[in-house]
Design a protein around this nucleic acid. Structure first.
Lengths: 202, 202, 202, 202
DNA sequence: TATGAATGAGGGTTCATTCAT
DNA sequence: GATGAATGAACCCTCATTCAT
C-alpha cells in the first residue's frame, strides 16, 4: 500500500488522472472508481481532497482554464505591433489546441454538460480579441467593413473545425500529405485569408 | 393506460423523447427511466423495441442523420449554377443548424462519445462539397489558389462557432441588436468573404 | 433465486421484516441490507417498491398506527357505559402495549427521530380520551376536581413506565412473582387508584 | 488554530458537544464528523482521547448519570421527614427532567439502543425509592395497601409521560395557559393524588 | 497533544437488463 | 405489444478507524 502522506502531491496526481479521463469520457461517463484505478488512490481519499465528484470536475476545469489563459498571456506580453500580436495569437491558439487535445474535449464536454467554466472563459477571450480588433478599426489600421466579432469567428471557427475533422478529411479525401503538413497548409491559407479580409482595401 | 398496440407509433414516440433527452444530457447522462418518464412508455417496452440502450441511441443518431441529409439533398436538387448551389447550401446549413438545436448537440455528444454516426456523415458531406469545389476550380470557375477542404472549413467552421457562442458574445460585448439581426449580419458578411475568396482575382 | 412476481406479497414481506428491524434498531441503525437479508428480497427490489428508505419507514409507521387505531376502535364499538368503556380501554391499551413490543419501540424511535407519525397519533388519542373525560365531568358523572388531561396522564404514563421498567424492577427488587402476576397486580392497583380519583367524593 | 495542549479542556469540550448531538440524533445518527465540526476538534484527536465512538458514548452517558445522581443526593441530604423528602424528590425529579431535556432523550436513546447505563441507573433509583416506601409502610406511616413499586410507577410514570406529550396536548386540546402554568397544575394535582393514595385512610 | 492523510467497508440509490404475466 | 417485478452491478458518498507527521 502507498501512504506517502503528501497531500499536495496526491491532489495533483488525482487532478492529472481526472483531467485525462474526464476529457476522454466526460463527467457522467467517468466514475470515481475509474479515476481511483487510474491513479492508484482510493475513492475515499479522492473525496477527502475534493469533497465530491462535481467539485473535482470543477477543479479540473479550472486548472485547464488556467493553462489556457497562461498561453495567451505569454503572447500578449511578448508581442510587438497589434497585427503581429494577432498573428502570433492565432498561431499560439492553433498550436495549443492542436497539442493539448484534452483541452478541446474538456471544453466541449463542459459546454454540453452546462458546466460553467471553460466555455465562458473562451467566449470572454474571443470577445476580448474582438474589442482589440475594434480599436484597430477605429485607429484606421484595418478594414472596418467587417464586424469585429464576425472576424474573430472567422479566425477561431475554422481552427476548431479543422482540428476536429482533419483526420476524417484526410481519410475521406485521401489527402496525400502527412497531418503536420496539412496543418501547415491550413494555417498558412487561413492567415492569408484573414490578412486579406483585414487589409484596408479588403 | 394507453395500450393501442401500435408498435410503429410507440417506436416513434420513444425516438422523439430519446432524441430530445440525449441531445440535452448525452448518452451517459440519460437513463432509460428518464426517457420512459418523458414519453410514458415503460422501460421494458422501450427495450422490447430497441433491444438495449446503445441501440436506441444509434437509432436516434440515424434518424438525425437522415433529417440532416434530406436538407442537403433538397438543396442539391433545387439548385441551378454551381455557385448558386453553394450559396444556397451555406444558407440551408446555417438555417438547419440554427433551428434544429438538438442536432448540433447530438452531433457533439456523439463525437465526444466516439459514437460513429453523425460526425462521419458530416465529414463526408463536407468532403463531398470540397470535391465539388475542386471541380469548379479545375473548370476555372473559381480561384484555385486555396485548398478546397480549407475553403469548406472556412465556410462551415465559422457557422458552427457562431451558433455555439453567439449568445455569450451578445452578452459579453453587449451587442445591441436582437439575435436574429446578429445572425443576419453574420451570415451576410460570411458569404461576402467566401465569395471574395473564391473569386478568381482573390 | 425466488421470482414469485407477486408484488403485493413482496411488499408485505418487506414491511414485516422492516417493522421488526426498525423496532429493534431504529431507522439509522437499520440498513436496507439488514432488511434485505432478513426477508430474502434484494435491496433493489425493496427500493422498487418503496422508492427510498425513509418511505419504507413511513409505511412501517403507518401500518403500525393502523393496528393501534384498530384496537381502540373495537373497544369504542363494544363498550357500554362510559365508565365501562374507559376501564376497557385501559385494559386494552395495557394488553396491546404489553404484547406488541414492536409498537412501543417504534413509537419511541420515531419520537426521538422526529419522524411524524406514531407520537402524534398517540397524543391525539390521549387528547380524545381527555375530551371524553371532560364530558363525563360536565355531566357530573365523575369528579371534576382533576384536569382531564392530567387524569389521562395518570392512566397512561404509569402503563408506559411499568412496561418499560418492570423487568428491571423485578430483578433489582427481587420480586418473587412471575411477570404476568406482577402485571396483574399492577393493573389492578392502577385501576383502583384511577377509580378512586374519578369517584365523585375523591 | 487552537493548540492549547490542554487535554482536560479538550475532553470536556468534546463531551459537551457529543452530549448535545447524541441527545438529538442518537448514537447511530451522530457521526464523529458531526461532533468534530461542532466542537472544532479533529476526529483524530477525539479518538485519541476516547479510543472509539462507543467509548465516547459511554463517557457521555456516565457523565449524564452522574449529574442525575447528584440531584437526588442533594435532595436526600437536605431532607427532613420521610414524607417531606419524597415530596421534595418528586419536585426535584420533575424540575430536572423538565430543564435538562438532553437527559430525557439520552435516556430514551440508550434504552432503545440497549446501551447499559442510564436506564439501569434510573431503575435502581426508582427501586431505591420503592424500598423507602416499603419502610414507611412497615413503620405504619403510610398506606400499605399499595405495592411500593406500583406507587413509584404512579409517581414517575406520569411525569415522564407529561413532559413528553404536554406540548402536543396543549396544541391538540387548545389549552389556553402557558406551558409553565400547565406544568404547575399538573405537578400540583399529581402530588395531591399521590398524597391521597399514600394516606392511611386511602 | 494535535492534525489530517489514508483506508476499506458499508451506506442508500440508480440503472440496464431479464423475464413472468 | 405491454407491464412491472426482480436482479446485480455500479455509483457517489459517509464513516470509523489507523497512522505518519
Amino acid at each position: 500500500m502507498r501512504k506517502p502522506r503528501d497531500g499536495q502531491d496526491t491532489r495533483q496526481r488525482v487532478l492529472s488522472s481526472a483531467m485525462t479521463l474526464f476529457a476522454e469520457q466526460g463527467f457522467a461517463g467517468t466514475s470515481l472508481a475509474d479515476i481511483s484505478k487510474d491513479c492508484g488512490i482510493s475513492d475515499g481519499l479522492i473525496l477527502h481532497h475534493f469533497q465530491n465528484k462535481k467539485n473535482l470536475y470543477q477543479a479540473v476545469l479550472e486548472q485547464s482554464a488556467d493553462e489556457y489563459t497562461k498561453v495567451f498571456e505569454s503572447v500578449r506580453e511578448s508581442a510587438g505591433s497589434p497585427q503581429a500580436m494577432m498573428q502570433e495569437a492565432m498561431l499560439a491558439a492553433f498550436k495549443f489546441w492542436k497539442e493539448d487535445t484534452s483541452y478541446q474535449r474538456l471544453s466541449l464536454w463542459s459546454y454540453l454538460e452546462g458546466q460553467s467554466g471553460l466555455s465562458e472563459k473562451e467566449a470572454q477571450f474571443t470577445a476580448g480579441m474582438a474589442q482589440m480588433v475594434e480599436q484597430l478599426q477605429t485607429q484606421g489600421m484595418i478594414n472596418n467593413q467587417i464586424s469585429p466579432v464576425v472576424l474573430m469567428t472567422m479566425v477561431i471557427g475554422p481552427i476548431h473545425f479543422w482540428l476536429r475533422y482533419r483526420e476524417q478529411f484526410k481519410e475521406t479525401l485521401q489527402l496525400p500529405d502527412a497531418l503536420d503538413e496539412l496543418d501547415e497548409i491550413f494555417i498558412r491559407q487561413l492567415l492569408q485569408v484573414i490578412s486579406m479580409i483585414s487589409s484596408k482595401e479588403g
